[in-house]
Computed example of a mutant assay.
Amino acid sequence: MYVELKQVAKLTLAGLSSVEISAKIIDENLFQYATNKSLDKLLSATLKRVAVLDEILLNLLVQGSLHTSKLVALIAIMKTNRLFLEFIEEVYLEKVRLGEQELEPKDFCIFFNNKAEQSLKVAGWQESTLKKLSQVYSIILFEAGLINSTRKKRLKRRSG
């Protein structure tokens, strides 16, 4: 949803309200979807993410380098998705602190098992849901440049 998020951010910076943005995206098919089937859900998520960013972050999302822009998108996801934020704090950043090189399938399993112990909602999720979330989290980390691929999830190090 990076491209869509960036489009909504541009429209927000141009001064359009969320209602005006929604209408423009739907009327002009700015997301270029074949059908409007999942458009409402996607639009709602992107508007929610843009709403948590201040003007500085919105400008970095729209005009920053690709790496910076994708990190701002990551921040927006973290600010709107508590479970993903907890994954970053409890798994990814812990791996970085410990100097570990890779995210492994067991890391996702341990994380979701811990969350299932803390939440009846998570405990009720099917294995397929947890697998899909693990895949989505991997894609988000890859797109943000924090891991090298979605298969062998080696943590990328930034120098400087």
Rank of each mutant, 00 (worst) to 15 (best):
Q63P: 03
D40V: 03
A51D: 15
L83N: 13
Y33F: 13
T150R: 14
I77Q: 00
F31N: 01
N36V: 09
I110F: 13
F108G: 02
S159C: 13
K95H: 08
L58N: 04
K153S: 06
K115G: 07
G160N: 15
A23S: 07
R49G: 07
K115S: 09
L85E: 10
L39Q: 07
V19Q: 10
T150L: 14
S134W: 00
S138E: 03
L146G: 14
M78Y: 05
K48Y: 10
E102G: 13
K121W: 11
E94S: 11
V8P: 00
K95W: 06
L60R: 03
L42W: 01
L53R: 01
D40G: 13
N148F: 11
L42S: 07
K153D: 05
T46Y: 02
M1R: 02
N81M: 06
V91D: 01
E100D: 09
R151S: 13
K153Y: 05
L57D: 11
S128W: 01
L39G: 10
E4Y: 04
A14K: 04
R154V: 07
E104W: 04
F142G: 08
L58C: 09
L47E: 12
K24V: 09
Q101L: 14
D27A: 11
L71W: 02
S69V: 02
L39K: 06
N59V: 02
